[in-house]
Amino acid sequence: MKTDIILSGVGGQGILSIATIIGEAATRTGLALKQAEVHGMSQRGGDVQSNLRLSDTSIASDLIALGTADMIISLEPMEALRYLPYLSKDGWIITSSAPFKNIPNYPDEQALADELRAQPHVVSLDVEQLARENHMQKSANVILLGAAASFLKILDAATLRESVGRIFASKGEEVVNMNYRAFDIGHEYVKSLGL
């Protein structure tokens, strides 16, 4: 079994933390992993992505081929759409619906939302808003990870949740518990959709 994930967002939003948590879960369960990251100039507010590949057999390429990604997990709706050509026929898009507008020519928000909604397999949720409502502004990315958990067939949600705890362990119990809650909020949200 193999799962190819494209993580996307804007430099500074924290997509690499999501990758770190999934990576921890994958290595702990003995899966092979390759994760191509973006360092350097793009991190200054440009579009950033990471190719994360998990498999129970060995992985050749660090990069995901067009039409083969099982998931796009994105912290920004336009950045989710940027990688559409990489998505496989039955692949899912799990994305934040809140636009990050740091460019003057950002597309029309409604048109963007409509195009996203027109995709066959998409979960779009305002993780920023959910984070604010639950007083966990810094955990928007973990809410998104919780939402993605149901679709990550290669890892079960409990294992992922455990990794959330392990990654934040050094920051103290309070931070760990907040991130557990964030994960649960995302996870419950998707369950409530009854997909």
Partner: peptide, 11 residues
């Protein structure tokens, strides 16, 4: 193996 065309609302 590309399935989906590039998005329209993209800059």
């Amino acid at each position: 193996g590309q399935v989906y065309a590039p998005a329209r609302n993209l800059v």
